[in-house]
């Protein structure tokens, strides 16, 4: 069971839930799974076949750089953060 942490500003799309459980072997399937219950949230997380604009996902604290095919270990924790930048 994978835990997806929903930040405050996305809880309008998760029915107010701060944490959602889902199943899947990679990000695409995890999001598809939670999309069954929260279609608007899935629609924000995946846009045009890629991770949604302005968002970054992290699996167990590691920022994802390989897109929706990134494997998700069992019992992983997925965080959603705004896209980050540096100088």
């Amino acid at each position: 069971m994978v835990r997806v942490l929903i930040p405050v500003t996305l809880r309008t799309l998760s029915g107010g839930e701060a944490e959602i459980e889902a199943v899947g072997h990679n990000l695409r399937s995890v999001i598809a799974d939670l999309g069954e219950r929260y279609p608007e949230l899935a629609g924000r997380l995946v846009q045009d076949g890629r991770i949604g604009r302005g968002l970054t996902l992290a699996i167990n604290g590691d920022v994802v750089s390989t897109g929706l095919i990134t494997k998700v270990p069992a019992d992983a924790e997925i965080a959603i953060v705004p896209q980050i930048s540096g100088g």
Partner: peptide, 14 residues
Amino acid sequence: AVEGASRADGFTYG
């Protein structure tokens, strides 16, 4: 903050 602490944006420190 030390290892295991988490920030408001959801990241946990290693």
